[in-house]
Nucleic acid binder design. Structure first.
Lengths: 208, 208
DNA sequence: TGTCGGTCGGACCAGTGGTCTAAGATGTAA
DNA sequence: TTACATCTTAGACCACTGGTCCGACCGACA
């Protein structure tokens, strides 16, 4: 998190720095982004930047937390209208996809987080906490499903979460790469894709 | 691929270079690995190294092709004893997991390839071809399943492949991180995990 | 002996993230 | 107004990255 001084900076300048950083990180991911370039484009000197942020990671985490918050808010918007676990699941999926298309930069930022090499996400890595907190949302979603009897409980939680998380990445990627295939039929395809999650996660009565 | 001269080098030296490179890449992935360190540890000068390999990518591809070949060979070993598509699928899964445990370095190398940021794997990226050729194996596996009527054909191939590929990564990771949970019961867990793939991929008759 | 091509050592380059110091700006109190 | 202290800034510098390049060395062959 930025040093407290950053909050004292004029809001315009704060926003300017974060916006430059967001586009650099969105385009190049964490490692690919050049901190020097961000500093330059923000019109700051090195000393100034390191005066407000501890390091590159600090700035990245700041930018990403904001992106994740916005995406989460969009994902949950109108969730109360969906009845039943899987309907809510589908609603969230559609909302998040719509959000990504409306705000490509935020979408790219979040995708970049998932795309980061394991070494960065792993315990001890720079973005460990950020990644873990994002993943935690999936854990809670699965647990909610289990509580409602809609998600199987015969497998280790970590396994289901890992698989569902991986499927989520794959499905998101497919969606944004196949907009022509999908066309106007977003409802049909959303149901189709959610169907994949249901196949994996729903209890079927044949579990050991 | 290495320059032809590399083949003329004494086999010991060839092996030495590749072995140093393999452990550096296995431990740190492509980007995390230091080419300078490899050069130093291999006891070469920069001029010499760049005389044999075009660049870091060239060396990486060379090392990884070998690792993939070995893993594929191990994966297919004894495949003829397995009857039926999903039995073969399970056999391959068990073989690949066993290979990874027996040869952690090769396993880490392949995992590192999958873990590489999209920017490197994407069209135009340095390891585009390497990644594509690895992924192609999944494509062919899925297509074989479709030909045998064991894998649904109602969804776009790219979607199924993407999802199965993502699941594969998740499942592999879970396996190596949960060896205690698995214990001696590798057969049971392999069946359990393959069950996840079957749930997603098998035709069920309710497809649109 | 001369030369020519294969081999190699290492200086050098532009870039990376990060540190540090000295100067300038600003606020506060005498 | 002056003096001092604290906040803010600029940018030189550092160790590192992958990559280029040129000169020297060396063995083979004329």
């Amino acid at each position: 998190m930025p040093r407290p001084r950053f909050a004292k900076l004029e809001p315009d300048k704060q926003a300017g720095i974060l916006s430059v950083a967001a586009s650099e990180f969105a385009e190049n991911g964490f490692e690919g982004a050049s901190y020097n370039r961000i500093i330059e484009q923000a019109g700051l000197s090195k000393g100034a930047m390191y005066y407000y942020f501890d390091d590159k990671t600090d700035l990245y985490v700041t930018v990403l937390k904001d992106a994740i918050d916005r995406m989460m808010a969009a994902t949950l918007e109108g969730i109360e209208d969906a009845g039943g676990y899987w309907a809510q699941f589908e609603h969230m999926f559609k909302q998040s996809v719509a959000f990504t298309l409306e705000h490509p930069e935020f979408g790219a930022l979040v995708r970049g987080l998932l795309d980061a090499p394991a070494r960065l996400r792993a315990a001890g890595g720079p973005i460990e906490k950020l990644y873990a907190s994002y993943r935690q949302q999936t854990v809670e979603l699965i647990q909610a499903g289990q509580a409602q009897g809609e998600v199987r409980t015969d497998l280790p939680l970590e396994l289901i979460v890992g698989v569902m998380f991986g499927m989520g990445e794959a499905v998101d990627r497919w969606w944004i790469e196949n907009l022509e295939t999908i066309g106007d039929d977003t409802d049909r395809w959303a149901r189709e894709l959610i169907g994949l999650f249901r196949r994996v996660a729903e209890p079927r009565g044949d579990e050991s």
